[in-house]
């Protein structure tokens, strides 16, 4: 028991190396002063980043991604928070059914959601566009928001709302002064993780973007001609954003609450 668990650390280290190797590789070669996106490293440069922030194809994609992420995350957070608040107070049987319902988008492979949305949108005459992408992203981020905020609410003693009412607060006051401060960290982290998910989402975007490409779609398009350092720089930019969002989100909520 006393000696350090060397084998355990070796295993965990190897697994994390495996998980992060592609990420490190992409970031590393985004700074490589060479037209080839592979070894050897000839020198360090920021020119690839300059390119992605000047080339119209890339700046459009970045703007599109940002727009989609912000709008879809906002919608998901508002609708998801409201739903989570109702789910903890509805009769258990209804909650069980609805919880199962909101798991569906997590379980159905994104490819199927993508082609189903494509079929649906063309059928009802909804133009394939950024709006369509936003709809797709709300679908995949809603369950995330409901799960995160639901987990937080589950750990709260909701009778404190009655206590607040008993002490003279109105319904909205009780919500704003008692409940909201308690679930605010969960709401913020849900928003950040939704943004990260949206910025990273590829398959649904691929099917329904209708020409308004987001960053992952542009990256995928670029891959047809081979990996280039500019693609790596573009991917690294999105990576930086999603990792930062995840880091902040992780500081705000206890992982143990969520993993339940």
């Amino acid at each position: 028991m006393r000696r350090p668990p060397i084998l355990a650390w070796l295993f965990v280290g190897a697994l994390l190396t495996f998980l992060f190797a592609p990420v490190v590789c992409v970031v590393l070669f985004s700074f490589n002063d060479s037209a080839a996106a592979g070894p050897p490293i000839k020198g360090l440069t920021l020119s690839w980043y300059r390119e992605i922030f000047t080339n119209v194809e890339y700046t459009d994609a970045l703007r599109n991604s940002l727009q989609v992420a912000l709008i879809s995350a906002s919608c998901s957070v508002v609708a998801g928070t409201a739903a989570a608040l109702a789910l903890v107070r509805l009769p258990r049987r209804i909650t069980a059914v609805l919880a199962g319902f909101f798991v569906v988008p997590m379980v159905v492979p994104a490819l199927f959601i993508g082609v189903a949305l494509l079929s649906f949108f063309t059928r009802i005459g909804f133009e394939l566009s950024l709006q369509a992408v936003i709809v797709g992203h709300i679908i995949v981020t809603l369950p995330l928001v409901i799960a995160l905020i639901g987990a937080r609410l589950q750990n709260l003693d909701l009778s404190m709302l009655e206590a607040a009412r008993d002490l003279g607060a109105s319904g909205p006051q009780a919500f704003a002064r008692v409940l909201l401060p308690l679930i605010a960290p969960a709401i913020v982290s849900a928003a950040l993780l939704s943004i990260a998910t949206s910025a990273d989402e590829f398959i649904i975007s691929l099917f329904v973007n209708g020409g308004d490409q987001t960053v992952p779609v542009v990256i995928f398009g670029g891959l047809r001609t081979g990996v280039t350092p500019a693609i790596n720089a573009l991917a690294s930019t999105i990576l930086a954003a999603t990792v930062l969002a995840t880091l902040i989100a992780g500081r705000l909520v206890s992982l143990r609450d969520v993993a339940r």
Binding site: P22, V23, V26, G38, D200, L239
Partner: peptide, 24 residues
């Protein structure tokens, strides 16, 4: 912290984790 590392991996680049293997 270790679980958190995995969560970060989960949110870091679906496409990246695939195409980077061509470089690797």
């Amino acid at each position: 912290p270790l679980l958190f590392a995995v969560v970060i991996a989960m949110f870091s680049g679906y496409l990246v984790r695939v195409y980077a293997w061509r470089t690797l």
